[in-house]
């Protein structure tokens, strides 16, 4: 029973956070020089004032901002997120379809970076101080500082252009009807963007895991384990992984923000039709404010969900916090 209390607190905090995000993003969107009227005038030169007045009325431009905000928020709560001006579909439908495509990409990248990060971090810790560790550590530090879009371009140049192993972009082969696309083709299209996206966080996780495992190796209980005849490898499997996994899981679920941010770059470079690509469509060329605000709210929920899961899992796995909650 009392175990649910911290979760209730997190959720209450999440709701206030989402309210704050909605207010801030709404204010920013209202303050931008682009509104439906200016956009309409730009795309339809010589439009009549009558038509413009109709438009202003339809979009509620003359209403006071607070009233407009409340109207928008009410719609969000009722499930009416407005209509995307660039896709000519309800915002929620656009997000739904696009997120499904993005999810495949993000989930693959997230799993890859988790496995590689933890594995490489463990390897570095076992070989700590030796040449292998030093080299891999430098490579990881180097990769931490590489921007996603750059590594994406390099992958495209090497694996798609030079070697021709992977397609240049898109989620499915061009010109093939959706029902004829095979799973193999989808995976083939997914690999390069997913690798690009996972490069973002795996070196970070590897360095953190290495640090945590070295702490374990320097700990009193590792000394005692050694005094009882356990080897370095045995200590890793018996004590190391157990102790390093909790921070790694917390980090991995806490990295949803970076994952989402990275997907914007990765999807644009590979023309991958996911939510990340939609962000830039909505935010730049088309200035699709309903979609843009919708994605902001959705991504805030997504990132919050990641942090919530991290908190809950840490509480569940770590026997020490279990005790504290009791």
């Amino acid at each position: 029973m009392s175990k649910l209390k911290p979760i209730a607190v997190y959720i209450a905090r999440g709701i206030t956070l989402l309210l704050a995000v909605s207010i801030c993003s709404f204010i920013l969107a209202s303050a931008s020089p682009i509104n439906p009227e200016t956009r309409y005038r730009l795309s339809h030169p010589g439009v009549s004032d009558e038509k413009v007045a109709q438009m202003r009325d339809y979009w509620g431009i003359d209403e006071p901002p607070v009233q407009r905000y409340l109207g928008w928020l009410g719609g969000i709560l009722r499930g009416d997120w407005g209509k995307s001006t660039s896709y000519r579909q309800p915002v929620l439908d656009v997000i739904g379809v696009r997120f499904k495509t993005s999810l495949a990409l993000m989930l693959t990248a997230w799993t890859l970076s988790g496995l590689f990060g933890f594995g490489i971090g463990s390897l570095m810790a076992v070989f700590r101080g030796r040449p292998l560790d030093r080299i891999v550590k430098r490579v990881c530090l180097f990769m931490c500082s590489i921007p996603t879009f750059w590594i994406g371009l390099v992958f495209l140049a090497v694996f798609a252009a030079m070697l021709g192993w992977f397609p240049f972009g898109l989620a499915v082969p061009a010109g093939v009807p959706p029902e004829q696309v095979t799973l193999g083709q989808r995976i083939h299209h997914l690999i390069l963007p997913a690798l690009t996206l996972s490069f973002l966080s795996f070196s970070n996780l590897a360095l953190h895991t290495r640090e945590k495992l070295i702490d374990v190796y320097d700990s009193d209980f590792a000394l005692f384990a050694r005094a009882r005849g356990e080897s370095d490898t045995k200590i890793l499997f018996r004590h190391g992984i157990r102790n390093a996994l909790i921070p790694a899981i917390t980090m991995q679920f806490g990295s949803f923000a970076e994952l989402f941010g990275g997907s914007v770059f990765a999807e644009n470079i590979f023309s991958y039709p996911g939510l990340g690509a939609a962000v830039s469509v909505a935010g730049t060329g088309a200035t699709d404010i309903p979609l843009f605000l919708g994605i902001v709210m959705f991504s805030a929920c997504f990132i919050f969900a990641g942090n919530l899961i991290a908190n809950i899992l840490t509480n569940l796995i770590d026997p020490r916090t279990k005790e504290a909650a009791r």
């Binding site: 384990a225 157990r242 026997p319």
Partner: peptide, 15 residues
Amino acid sequence: LALVPQSVTYLDPLM
């Protein structure tokens, strides 16, 4: 050859 260590920190906190 066995060691009796000093304190509880010589036990793995998660095991």
